[in-house]
Design a binder for these strands. Sequence first.
DNA 1: ATAAAACCGGACTAATATAGTCGTATTTAA
DNA 2: TTAAATACGACTATATTAGTCCGGTTTTAT
Lengths: 132, 132
Amino acid sequence: MVKFSKKLEYALISLRHISNAGDEVTRVRDISEKYSIPHDLLAKILQKLKKENILASSQGINGGYTLSRKLDEIPLSELVSVIENGTSIVECMHDEDNNCLINDSCTIKDPLSKIQNEFENILKTKMISDFV
Amino acid sequence: MVKFSKKLEYALISLRHISNAGDEVTRVRDISEKYSIPHDLLAKILQKLKKENILASSQGINGGYTLSRKLDEIPLSELVSVIENGTSIVECMHDEDNNCLINDSCTIKDPLSKIQNEFENILKTKMISDFV
DNA sequence: ATAAAACCGGACTAATATAGTCGTATTTAA
DNA sequence: TTAAATACGACTATATTAGTCCGGTTTTAT
């Protein structure tokens, strides 16, 4: 029901690897081979991290990735929202016009939303460095 | 990525309805019609709740469900683990013998497990009555 | 120039998880 | 004995996630 995706796991693995490499640039191939992660899939993930300014990239024959920000300054919530498309735990029963199908009696969504908020707060307080 | 299933929502709706009905037995059909939930699907959910001793059932023509336990004594975590098959947020990269594929370098799982623990603690502290 | 890298987007397939259906048995009040 | 209910497993359908493939462009050390 509630679980993180492979993509998030791949991202964490990559960030740890790149972090450990220090100033040396890391190629997608280095990571994909070492951890048996599909190259093309991983490449897309790292591109997203670059757009989010978590990674810096250099092109050309000796190109690759380095960290752009310190991992203790990046909350896990940021990584999650970059990798996944949206973080909603709760989805109400609604029709295509977003009208609630349970009409006036729906008091389920709000309480579940509170759980989602608490969950997101956990993600906000945890920095990526906590996982590396 | 992280969200609750329809089944959990259906279960909460049903528990609230049955709770409001007091001593009167509630048929699956009552709930499925009122909230537009597929009858057979809902029936299975309520059967699971009966096995977990959250609901009591009576068969036969005037049969139906009533509450078996008070809703303020049932943590949401119990409902989740009954409805979903397991509550694991984190799944490690492992082969069919459960050996970690990242060998010695895998330190991703443990930290993510901590998040899962915190999440489960939230579910444990919330009673079903908080959502009804 | 060439090779190897990031960069880009989209369409596609495959695998998995969730949602929902169907058929049939069992129970029981009337 | 019949109708209406729960009980239960096998099945199909849909949605989501994971991964592949294509067809490139741009950059840069050698």
